[in-house]
Computed example of a mutant assay.
Amino acid sequence: MVSLYSGMPPALLHNSQLDQRKVSHPSALGIEVGKDIQVKYFGRDPVSGLMRLSRKVLQASPR
């Protein structure tokens, strides 16, 4: 879960959007509760209304 702003309800950042490679748990990347990370906001899902977030689009593509 990611809090974008204080007072805002947290949004889900799916495991598939954490990194370019497959990750089973955020701790594999050193991400812990309370750690600041950068994510990109893609708007809201038109069906569910939930926020769409991604961390992997901000990373350089693997070579």
Rank of each mutant, 00 (worst) to 15 (best):
G49L: 00
D45Q: 03
P26F: 10
F42Y: 15
P9T: 10
A11N: 05
L12K: 11
L53A: 05
Y5H: 14
Q59S: 06
L50N: 08
F42T: 03
Q38Y: 12
R52V: 11
A60T: 13
I31P: 03
V2E: 05
D45M: 01
L13G: 02
V47G: 01
G34Y: 06
G43K: 00
I37C: 03
A11R: 05
S27G: 07
V23A: 05
E32L: 15
K35S: 10
S3G: 09
Y41T: 03
L18S: 01
I31W: 06
A28T: 12
H14P: 10
R55H: 14
M8Y: 13
L58E: 07
L50A: 09
F42W: 15
G34P: 04
L18M: 08
K40F: 04
G49T: 00
D36E: 15
L12M: 14
Y5M: 07
Y5G: 00
V39K: 06
V47E: 08
R52Q: 14
M8G: 11
V23N: 06
D19A: 11
A60Q: 14
S3A: 15
R21W: 05
V47A: 07
P62V: 04
R44W: 03
L29T: 01
Q38V: 11
H14C: 09
D45A: 05
K56D: 10
V39Y: 01
P10F: 07
A11M: 08
M8W: 15
S16M: 12
S61W: 07
S6A: 14
L53G: 06
D19K: 07
S48Q: 03
V23P: 02
F42P: 00
V2G: 04
V39H: 10
L13R: 08
L29S: 02
G34T: 08
P9W: 06
V23L: 12
V23S: 03
R55Y: 04
P46A: 01
S6G: 07
D36N: 09
G34A: 03
L4Y: 05
R55N: 09
A28I: 09
E32R: 14
V23M: 14
S24P: 05
D19S: 13
Q59K: 10
D19R: 07
I37R: 02
S54V: 03
R63Q: 12
A60V: 06
V39W: 04
P26Y: 13
G30D: 00
H14V: 08
D45W: 01
L12E: 11
H25P: 01
Q20T: 10
K35R: 13
L12Y: 08
S3D: 09
S24N: 15
N15R: 14
L53N: 02
K40P: 03
K56T: 08
D19P: 00
E32A: 11
P9N: 09
P10K: 03
A60G: 11
D45N: 12
R21P: 01
G7H: 00
K35I: 12
Q20S: 14
G7S: 04
R63T: 12
V47C: 04
S48M: 07
I37P: 00
Y5I: 02
G43C: 00
L29F: 04
V2C: 10
L53T: 08
S6T: 10
S16T: 09
V57G: 01
